[in-house]
Every structure is written in C-alpha cells, then in structure tokens.
Design a protein around this nucleic acid. Structure first.
Length: 160
DNA sequence: GCCAACGTTGGC
DNA sequence: GCCAACGTTGGC
C-alpha cells in the first residue's frame, strides 16, 4: 500500500443492498460480509484502517455508479457467515482456528449530491490520469484501493 | 438476456 | 505446474 491510497471503493448491487440500505442500517453500519475473493479479502484484512474513506459503488445497476460516501468502521475480523451452514456464504473448508475470510464493518457517512455514473467516471479527464482499478478492462474486484485524489474528484463531480 | 473477462478448481 | 472447464461478475 502507498500512503496516498488510504481510500477504498466497494461494490454492491443496489437490488440486493444499496447505499440507502446502509444508511438505514443500525448506526448506518454493516459487516461487509460475503466477500469470497482473495485479493479483496487481503485489502480488508491487511490494509484497511478504521476511518478510511470508502466510496460505495452500485454495480449491476442502471445506471451503475458511485452512490455515497462511507468509512471503515471496525478492525478486520473473521466473516461469521463462512461458519454458518445456512448462509449462502458458508465455506465448509474454512477452519475456525484459521479463518479464511475476513471483513470490516462499513458505515455510511454521507450520500453524494447525486449518483456519479460509470459513464461519467470514464469520460472524466482528471480521473483518467489516476488509472483507477475500477475503470480497467474486465475489472471484477469488489473491494479495491482508490487514490484520495479520485475521491475528491468524484465528490466534486457529484456537486457539479 | 447476452457475453466477455476473470478467478477457481481439478485432472493430469 | 499447466491448462481446460466451469461458475461468476458486471456492463450493456
């Protein structure tokens, strides 16, 4: 991790759990459970810190885009759903003494003035210079670092 | 619903 | 360790 990358972007399908759902959650907070990708897990387990800025992105949506601002609200801890046989995210191969999947809590801090769409992100010359993982071809990561400058820019776009 | 891109699995 | 098959993601 570089020191300037202390900001993150997380994806969620608004039909399943959108930014408004996070706002309505107790303390505007939810465990970011169900992530089953090692790179995304590593970001949560190893690199996220309480208070880091998080952009909440709506994927598989019409339109897709950044919907709101959030923050990391806990230290990393094992994702309890991996041990829950009734959960879609159950992982029978994960051992309680060495959990495979980790998460952090995410708390909504503020909605953006409006949704900033994926198309806008792609068209913006400032963001183009920041080489966002989100905008790379074929990107599928659900948790990724984002430069702080990109957060500032996206907030500005939302207010424009 | 389609399909390209990607990560994971498992046979060898 | 290779790589084909498979399942999933996510934009459109």
């Amino acid at each position: 991790m570089t020191e300037t990358a202390r900001a993150w972007l997380v994806k969620s399908e608004p039909d399943v759990f959108g930014f408004d759902d996070l706002v309505r959650a107790p303390d505007h907070t939810t465990p970011w459970d169900g992530v089953r990708n090692y790179q995304a897990r590593n970001y949560m387990r190893d690199d996220m810190r309480v208070g880091d800025v998080v952009l909440f992105y709506h994927s598989n949506a019409n339109p897709a885009g950044v919907a709101g601002l959030a923050e990391v609200a806990s230290e990393p801890y094992p994702d309890p759903t991996q041990f829950d046989a009734g959960s879609d995210y159950h992982d029978a191969a994960s051992d309680r003494s060495a959990p495979r999947w980790w998460l952090v809590d995410v708390r909504a801090t503020a909605p953006l003035a409006r949704l900033v769409t994926l198309a806008e992100l792609r068209e913006d010359p400032v963001l183009a210079g920041l080489d966002l993982p989100l905008l790379r071809r074929g990107n599928r990561l659900s948790v990724m670092p984002i430069p702080a400058a990109a957060v500032d820019r996206i907030v500005a776009l939302a207010e424009s």
